[in-house]
Design a protein around this nucleic acid. Structure first.
Length: 252
DNA sequence: CGAACATGAGCAC
DNA sequence: TGCTCCTGTTCGT
């Protein structure tokens, strides 16, 4: 489930395991050319929204995006043979990481990294995120808040599961428009708080006392009040909301 | 065993 | 707006 919290979790683990080493990159599947990275030291692994950036010395940054189905597998024994279809293996003498089914795995030459960063809004899991800018972007976005939070150029890292649960926690109807700066700030604070919980737990956490439960996401009834969960298409994804706990704004 | 569905996003039309 | 790409999980038969 690679939304932003898991991307940051991957980055943290891989940075700890790989930064400072000179790993061997291979592509068992053959669809990635590791040539530019041969013999290069890996300085840092960074997450930005749903994107991973691998910073090597003397080589362009390596950009990985998992899409909906991508994942990383870790092998504590780097001699374990990769399964068929591994796009990229990053291996040291101590560990191997196998990349499966990404939608992006490519060097970012030239100003590619700058362009990528410029295309992304503030990421609630990044220490350098500017909350005021995040509030401004969401509060001035046209359209429904449930579509806006999935727009990576407004906020980076939120996916469909977090959309459902964060808007529930904020008591916001996903269809609401022009929610205003105070509501946008409250939503940002919830995102920063809960995505960090999710990053540390390795899964979506929307109730710390019941980390495996969801309030509305993929549920038939609201976990708080039991009302039937409303389900519809919003921003090209299935939205979930409680009609009682996330009431529609009064008309006018 | 096959079908359906899924956390994403670029692109054609 | 809809199609496409990629794999893993879950469900029904």
């Amino acid at each position: 489930m690679p939304e932003g919290h898991l991307i940051h979790r991957y980055a943290r683990a891989q940075h700890a395991a790989l930064a400072g080493s000179t790993p061997t990159l291979t592509s068992p599947q053959g669809r990635f050319d590791p040539g530019p990275y041969a013999g290069r030291a890996l300085a840092a692994v960074e997450a930005y929204g749903k994107h991973l950036l691998y910073h090597f010395d003397e080589a362009p940054p390596l950009h990985v995006h998992l899409g909906m189905r991508g994942l990383w597998l870790r092998h504590d024994d780097p001699a374990v043979a990769p399964r068929k279809g591994v796009r990229l293996r990053i291996a040291t003498g101590a560990v191997a990481y196998d990349l499966i089914a990404p939608i992006r795995c490519e060097p970012l030459p030239g100003d590619g990294e700058r362009a990528l960063r410029a295309s992304l809004g503030p990421d609630p899991l990044r220490a350098d995120a500017d909350p005021d800018e995040a509030v401004r972007r969401l509060a001035t976005a046209g359209g429904a808040v449930g579509a806006a939070v999935l727009d990576q150029s407004l906020w980076a890292g939120i996916g469909n599961a977090w959309r459902a649960e964060l808007l529930f926690l904020a008591g916001l109807d996903p269809d609401a428009r022009r929610i205003g700066a105070p509501a946008a700030r409250r939503l940002w604070e919830l995102a920063a708080e809960y995505l960090a919980l999710g990053r540390d737990a390795g899964q979506v956490v929307s109730d710390p006392t019941a980390p495996d439960e969801r309030w509305v996401y993929k549920r038939a009834e609201c976990r708080r009040c039991g009302a039937p969960v409303r389900r519809w298409e919003l921003g090209a994804r299935t939205a979930y909301a409680c009609p009682v706990d996330q009431p529609a704004a009064p008309p006018g």
